[in-house]
Design a protein around this nucleic acid. Structure first.
Lengths: 214, 214
DNA sequence: GTCATCATGTAAGCCGTTACATGATTGC
DNA sequence: GCAATCATGTAACGGCTTACATGATGAC
């Protein structure tokens, strides 16, 4: 799921790890602050598998790369010197770019049914739904809807002996049910917009606004 | 979290593993089918730590326990024989009972702040809220409320550039916001009931219904 | 001078899952 | 005769977290 989210961000633009973490939180809302201990290894995996390429930040000051001399102190001095001139301030950043293989992997992950009927997974996929073909978009929404409807039915069956539940548990069940019903009607609205009879009106409006992200 | 849930169920009654799995789903709604590969090891851990004791199902037919003879076929025959008479049908079940140490552990886990601002964890604790002293109950509700309020504020700050989001992401953000707001007002209702001025009316009504579970 | 932010990474651990192993009973 | 349900368990793996290591810059 993390790799899917990363690839989704990189579909839009090149980013470095630290920035990806912020976007994961702010744009995809999904991982409220992923830990670095999970982010950086994920980026390295994606790089090794060829899904992304890492470019050490382009050096604005045209400094020649520091060669490996084997002399630690020498290299440190060179790094300090480089920073003092061109690369003022921060530590070197690795900027990641998605490759064609990465795009293929992304498309595959996005359309797969891994972690279906998991709220986080659905939220992530919906946030990236603009990259899905319309048919897959409808499938995603319908899959989620079906899983929610089934959950409601299960809850109704189990509710036969709902009187035995104490007020707290009962209140929780009621609230959960309400939230689920609301999500279903929200999905219905999205589905309506998605397959409106004749590819007109709302659909076109959506397609238009969608133009923004190119 | 799994151990907390198990102890919570066992506070109410003795249960065997297979049954616990069902209750986890139906009563606590929390783990929609925990895997056995996680449930049984958890029970064994709790047993080893003295939080629960396991009793192999009381033998209605007063059959003597099968001693380990080393002869596999002999033991199998004895088991078959026992089943044929008293223990018809199912495999021997291990029924678990919570111990005083287990009760102490349960109280501690239930009141701890582990996994605070995690929805599942809050849901579980609320489902078990009848076992909390009123003050801790209020704390639990307020903690959750605070974490939701903060999330809303964060979302509002991040929403400065919300126009750049495509319709799918935006719709998701809006839906999430609405659900969060509803949860907050639900919590407010629970908090009102909890600390109604003068320990009367609603509070008493709740305390009454609560009597059921003893 | 010290705290937050930027920036990358490793090592150990936690808590869950899937897959495998075993076997009887009940209903179709 | 075949699938589903009851019942317990192990082994391997997955995916995330916390804690540790390192170090510069800018703001107060």
């Amino acid at each position: 799921m993390l790799e899917l989210a990363i690839l989704g961000l990189l579909e839009g633009q090149e980013l470095h790890g630290y920035e990806i973490r912020k976007r994961l939180r702010d744009d995809l809302g999904i991982f409220s602050n992923v830990s670095f201990g999970s982010l950086y290894p994920a980026l390295n995996r994606l790089e090794r598998s060829g899904a992304v390429v890492a470019v050490v930040e382009p050096d604005a000051g045209s400094t020649t790369p520091v060669p490996m001399t084997g002399s630690l102190s020498g290299e440190r001095a060179a790094l300090r010197a480089r920073r003092a001139t061109s690369n003022r301030g921060r530590r070197a950043r690795k900027v990641y770019r998605i490759t064609p293989e990465g795009k293929a992997l992304f498309a595959e992950l996005l359309d797969s049914e891994r972690d279906a009927d998991d709220a986080r997974s659905f939220g992530l996929r919906l946030a990236l739904a603009r990259y899905l073909p319309p048919s897959a978009r409808v499938r995603l929404l319908e899959r989620r809807r079906a899983s929610l409807v089934e959950r409601l039915e299960q809850a109704r069956l189990a509710a036969t002996g709902r009187d035995r539940l104490d007020p707290y548990a009962r209140s929780l069940v009621e609230h959960t049910t309400e939230v689920t019903e609301r999500e279903i009607s929200w999905l219905d609205r999205l589905l309506d917009a998605e397959r409106a009879p004749g590819v007109t009106a709302r659909t076109v409006a959506i397609a238009d606004t969608e133009g923004e992200h190119r």
